[in-house]
Amino acid sequence: MMSLIFFILFAAMLVAFCGKKSLGYGLFSVSVIVGLYWFNHHATDSLSILL
């Protein structure tokens, strides 16, 4: 999943470099949304540690 976020960011940079900035902004927004979802998934996951 983490590599998907980096791939989307890489695609956004390539697309923006080629001149299609609106598509680059869209891909960047998608990567931020996926990254925030992934962070929320890990931040709210319960730990199974017995102290």
Rank of each mutant, 00 (worst) to 15 (best):
H42N: 08
L14I: 01
M2Q: 02
I8H: 02
M1V: 10
F39R: 03
L27Y: 03
S3Q: 13
L23I: 11
L50Y: 08
F17I: 12
I8M: 04
Y25M: 02
M1K: 02
A12R: 00
L27G: 01
V15N: 02
T44V: 15
S29I: 09
A12E: 06
G19R: 05
M1L: 12
M1T: 09
L47D: 08
F7W: 11
M1W: 06
A16Q: 10
L51M: 02
T44M: 15
M13G: 08
Y25I: 03
S22K: 04
V32G: 12
F6N: 11
T44F: 15
D45H: 08
S46G: 14
S46R: 14
C18E: 07
M13R: 07
L9I: 13
C18D: 02
W38Q: 07
F39W: 14
Y25K: 01
W38M: 08
S31R: 03
Y37E: 11
H42C: 03
A11M: 12
D45K: 06
H41D: 11
G26V: 05
T44E: 14
A43V: 10
G24I: 09
F6H: 09
V34W: 01
W38P: 00
L50M: 05
G24P: 05
V30W: 01
S31H: 02
V34K: 01
N40T: 10
L27D: 00
A12Q: 06
M2N: 05
I8P: 04
A11L: 15
S48I: 07
M2H: 05
S48T: 04
I8S: 00
S29N: 10
I5P: 00
S22I: 03
I5H: 00
I5M: 07
Y25D: 00
K21W: 14
S46E: 13
S48N: 07
F39T: 10
L51Y: 07
F6D: 11
K20L: 08
V34M: 06
I8N: 03
S48P: 04
K20F: 10
L4Y: 09
A12L: 05
S22M: 03
H41V: 13
A16D: 11
K21M: 13
F17M: 13
L14P: 00
H41I: 12
I5V: 15
S29G: 15
I33N: 01
I33W: 07
G19C: 02
L9G: 10
M13Y: 10
A12Y: 03
L50T: 09
S46H: 13
A12G: 13
S22W: 02
H42A: 09
F39I: 12
F28S: 06
A12W: 04
V32A: 15
C18T: 06
F10R: 10
F39M: 12
M13L: 14
M13E: 08
F39P: 04
A43T: 07
L36C: 15
G19M: 00
G35Q: 11
L36M: 15
G24V: 09
T44C: 15
K21P: 04
S46M: 14
A16G: 13
V15D: 00
L14S: 01
I5G: 03
S48D: 09
